[in-house]
């Protein structure tokens, strides 16, 4: 496991050099917990200590952690509503243009355009636009895709997708202090506490 970690670090360094993002700086202090309940508990406490630039990493969504460490609600829904309306208008405009302007053709004496027969296509395009925008939004709002993130330097970051619940105090936080923050994390019962530079 140690060898693997070393080669991983080397690969990361090479990658960063290639991309020209070499300049290392302190990213955060990170500590791991073994259960989601401990993470939420620690999150509440560390927020109470006055830290604000917080994050957590977990293998599944831990309920309550976002409120505990002050992560705002997702704004994804608003974006999707806009795209849903765009899909709705696109469908209506398409069928109006085709049926009335570009190629008016009377079939069975039916009107050239009417909202009734446009319902199915309009519905489908609304869903299509919303669905695509929602998927792209999930990643775009998270800043993904991303080739490198400093949290990868944390020695057990690979367990954040397995069985560890990691609390992150970012170095941008005004209260951040290498000694003090490390001690704070340890006092909350975090294991493998480490100041991550990357």
């Amino acid at each position: 496991m140690a060898d693997q970690q070393v080669s991983r670090d080397q690969a990361l360094e090479a990658l960063k050099e290639k991309l020209g993002v070499g300049r290392d700086k302190t990213y955060a202090a990170m500590g791991a917990f073994t259960t989601p309940e401990e993470l939420v508990e620690a999150g509440k406490k560390i927020y109470g200590m006055g830290y604000r630039k917080l994050d957590a990493m977990s293998p599944f969504p831990v309920h309550g952690i976002d409120d505990a460490i002050g992560i705002p609600r997702s704004k994804l829904g608003w974006m999707v509503v806009c795209f849903a309306l765009a899909g709705l208008f696109t469908a209506q405009a398409l069928m109006y243009y085709v049926g009335v302007i570009n190629y008016p053709l009377v079939i069975g004496g039916k009107p050239l355009f009417d909202f009734t027969f446009t319902i199915p296509v309009t519905f489908e395009l609304t869903v299509l636009f919303s669905g695509i925008s929602c998927t792209l939004g999930i990643f775009a709002f998270n800043g993904l895709p991303q080739l490198y993130h400093p949290s990868m330097k944390y020695k057990i970051s690979h367990r954040a997708s397995d069985d560890r619940f990691i609390l992150v105090v970012e170095a941008d936080d005004p209260k951040f202090d290498v000694q003090k923050t490390t001690a704070d994390l340890k006092s909350l019962g975090a294991q493998e506490v480490e100041v991550v530079v990357g």
Partner: peptide, 13 residues
């Protein structure tokens, strides 16, 4: 990376 921010947008989405 399973960040709490990731999960929040993910769950909403």
């Amino acid at each position: 990376r399973g960040s709490a921010r990731h999960w929040r947008n993910y769950e909403a989405g």
